[in-house]
Amino acid sequence: MTPPADLLEGHRIVCHLDKVLADRGMTLTELAERVGVSIVNLSVLKNNHAKAVRFSTLTAICEALECNVGDILGLRP
């Protein structure tokens, strides 16, 4: 039996960027412009395909969305 994708990746971190963006009424393109990170990379993060996030990226996202790290990232049970 093939193990679930999150076990293959070796983590249970989940990204809530889409929810936070929707709450703020902001598009991914707009966030990319504000944060200075490519839309491709932000899309990777939003779709839970990222394996690691730089502290600088997290800081920039949190500043742009006026939120905390816990609002963007969570731990899947």
Binding site: V37, V44, A50, K51, A52, R54, T57
Partner: peptide
């Protein structure tokens, strides 16, 4: 190292 960096945002 490249594999480590793949998927880094």
């Amino acid at each position: 190292m490249r594999e480590d960096l793949e998927g880094l945002v």
